[in-house]
């Protein structure tokens, strides 16, 4: 596979390490009342769609960016690649 890195252009997927669903960005609030349930869902439950999937790839053999890649799990077609940090910010994560 080829991942079109937003900063570096097309790179072979072998340069990257895969983590999983980009929902892993949405780490729950540890002080929420139901933090235990939220962390369980965060850590263990997955939508696992057959189709479009937003997922985290890490450019370990490159610039060490974490990327959010939108990829179809049925065809492996990649339709979007973003810097994960930008995605995280857009989802309301800060310091």
């Amino acid at each position: 596979m080829i991942i079109n890195h937003p900063l570096l252009g097309p790179r072979d997927a072998a340069e990257f390490v895969y983590l999983g669903d980009a929902a892993l960005i949405d780490r729950p609030d540890w002080q929420a009342k139901d933090a235990a349930e939220q962390f369980h869902a965060y850590g263990y439950l997955r939508d696992n769609p057959a189709g479009t999937h937003q997922e985290l790839w890490y450019h370990e053999q490159g610039d060490r960016s974490w990327l959010v890649v939108t990829r179809d799990t049925l065809t492996h077609e990649i339709t979007d690649v973003q810097i994960a940090r930008d995605v995280a910010r857009s989802r309301g994560r800060s310091a």
Binding site: V17, Y58, W66
Partner: peptide
């Protein structure tokens, strides 16, 4: 060594991007 670094980058970029 590699794994810890990877996970720290994940925390830095994806969990606490404004630190």
């Amino acid at each position: 060594a590699v794994l810890v670094y990877r996970r720290m980058e994940f925390a830095r970029q994806c969990l606490w991007p404004d630190m």
